[in-house]
């Protein structure tokens, strides 16, 4: 359904990745590990009704209905998205800052991190059934509280002027543009404020390759993929290589570098 949103100063004016690519080339292992699986196998997923439970170290724990979340002040945010696999897109998300939601539940002083959880519905998500499941479910992710409160961090409920397609994480997902794509957890059912650094799915799966922070960083090499360059989806073709240099913090260094002042980003990858 169409979705109205105001513009944002945080949007990039780079050329948008075609909607066709944004909605057919996805990593959403709950629907399968192929890039086309999420768009091909998510038609039975029911994003409505939906609610997001926010609990943990908060003064006012609350379960938000999706209708209430859709009524937040929605903005269009055109962000770069960089996948750890070495490809990137430019996507016009629609959403609201996560900090707006956090303010409503009043985090306690002891809360240091935010953890997130994706829905588990094997009957609607074919990647969650069968003998060879790529990951443990539910998919879990986490941010430091200051990262979660950063104005660039949003909960997205739409893209390209419409509500989120199932394959992109309907009905509500996280978008953290300076981190590799897998940090931007999809189809969220639970957000908890916690004291200790939360576990995260990919770190649990392979801690040597995926760290808690997972900030886009061309200088920290991934054991399998060089992170120095990226392929912009939709710009290359079969005979045209669309490699471009990867920027520190995915080009959001001016906004977020201060979050990591004094930290060794090679150790905290």
């Amino acid at each position: 359904a169409p979705l109205a949103a105001s513009t944002s100063q945080f949007s990039t004016d780079e050329k948008l990745t075609p909607k066709e690519a944004v909605t057919t080339y996805n990593n959403f292992y709950e629907f399968g590990t192929g890039k086309g699986d999420p768009s091909e196998k998510s038609q039975h997923f029911k994003p409505l009704p939906w609610s997001v439970k926010v609990d943990g170290m908060v003064g006012k724990p609350k379960e938000f209905g999706i209708e209430e979340l859709m009524k937040m002040q929605l903005e269009e945010r055109v962000y770069r998205l960089r996948c750890v696999e070495g490809w990137s897109m430019v996507i016009p998300w629609i959403g609201f800052p996560l900090s707006v939601l956090l303010d409503q539940v009043e985090p306690l002083g002891s809360a240091k991190y935010v953890s997130f959880e994706t829905v588990v519905r094997p009957e609607e998500m074919p990647g969650q059934t069968g003998l060879f499941q790529p990951l443990e479910w539910p998919y879990i992710e986490g941010l430091r509280l200051d990262e979660a409160r950063h104005p660039l961090t949003i909960l997205a409920v739409g893209l390209y002027g419409e509500t989120l397609p199932n394959q992109n994480g309907a009905p509500i997902r996280l978008v953290v543009p300076w981190k590799y794509g897998f940090k931007s957890i999809k189809s969220i059912v639970k957000i908890s404020l916690v004291e200790e650094q939360p576990e995260t799915t990919w770190k649990n799966s392979n801690a040597r390759e995926y760290g808690f922070y997972s900030n886009v960083n061309p200088e920290v090499d991934h054991p399998r993929w060089s992170q120095a360059t990226e392929q912009r989806i939709g710009e290359g073709g079969f005979f045209k290589v669309a490699n471009r240099p990867t920027l520190m913090f995915n080009g959001y260094g001016e906004e977020v570098a201060s979050l990591y002042e004094g930290m060794d980003l090679k150790a905290n990858y």
Binding site: E20, Y25, K35, I233, F238, V241
Partner: peptide, 15 residues
């Protein structure tokens, strides 16, 4: 397929 746009949005990797 790759040369005619039939291999999806990342034809190089797919091929």
């Amino acid at each position: 397929l790759g040369a005619t746009g039939g291999l999806g949005v990342n034809p190089v990797k797919t091929f």
